[in-house]
Amino acid sequence: MGWFDRLKQGLQKTKQLLQTDVRDLFKAGQILDEAQLEKFEAGLIRTDMGVAAASQIITNLRNEYLGRTVEVANIWGTVKSTLKSILIGENDVRWDRDQPLSPLKTAASKPTVILVSGVNGVGKTTTIAKLAKLIQTSGHTVMLAAGDTFRAAAVEQLTMWSERLGCPIVTKPSGTDPAAVAFAGCEAAVKEGVDYLIIDTAGRLHTQQNLMKELEKVRRIIDKQVPGAPHESLLVIDATTGQNGVNQAKQFSEAILCTGIVLTKLDGTARGGVVVAIRQQMGTPVKYVGVGEQIDDLQLFDPDSFVEALFAEG
C-alpha cells in the first residue's frame, strides 16, 4: 500500500463526512444560498480547522458563488485551493515524495539534531521511534537521547524502541535534569559521528511556565554543545486536539522555536484540521503525519494530498 493510500485511508472518515454533507448540499444546477453555506461551514468546523479558517473559506465562496448556479467542480476548486494555499504557506518547506527526509533541515556538519516536544500523551516517543526508522531506511545513522526523565518508565519505553531498531541511545536515570541528557546526547553524537540525533523531552502542558523554561534550557544547552542546533525542533500534535492546538503551537514556539509539526493519530476519526489554523496563525508547517501504530506509519506530509484526500472523490 502506497503512502498516499495510507493517508487516504486515515482520512477516510473525514472524507466521508465532508462528502455526504457536500453531496447533499451542492447539487449541480441549484442556486447557492446562505443556508447551504452555513451547512457547509458546519462541515468545515467539524474538521477542527477553527472558526477563522472556516469563515475565510466561506467568505471566499460567498463572494464568488452566492446566488449563482452551483457548479460543484468550481466550488471544490475554490475550497481546495484556499486550504492548500494556507497549508503550503510561502513555499518555505519542501515535501519531496522520493526523499522522506526532505522537510528536515540538515546540518552542514554532522550531527543534525532534532528536538521533539509536545504536551502529554500526543505520542512523542512513538513518533521518535518512527522518525528514527525513517532515517535508518533512508540510509543514515541515528542516535536517540531519552530526555523524558519525568514520566515513570518513559526511558524504558524509548530504550525498548532503540533495541528494536538497533540504534544507540543515551539515557540517564529517571529524575535527571533533561538538559544533562541533551548534553550527553550531543556529546555522544559528535563523538560517534552519527548523522542524526533525536532528543526526546517529557510531555508538558504549555501553560506550565517552569517546565517551558526547562525546555528553553534544553534548547540552549543543545545550541551550546552543537552550534546552530537543534536544526529541527518538532512539535508533536495529536489530531484529536481542538483549538487548544493553536495555543500549544504558540507557547512551544516561544520556548523552542518550533520549525515543524508532526500530526499524530490521524488513523482515528479525528481530522486534525487544527493544523490549518496553526499554519494560518503561526506559520508553522506540518512536516509529518502519523497514520497508525506500526513503526513505519509515519508519512511525509503533503498539503496537496492532505487536502486531496480530504475531498477526494469516491
Binding site: T240, G242, R271
Partner: peptide
C-alpha cells in the same frame, strides 16, 4: 478523556 479534544470528542 483529554479535555483538549476537539470536535472528535463526541465520536469517541
Amino acid at each position: 478523556c483529554d479535555s483538549m479534544t476537539g470536535q472528535d470528542a463526541v465520536n469517541s
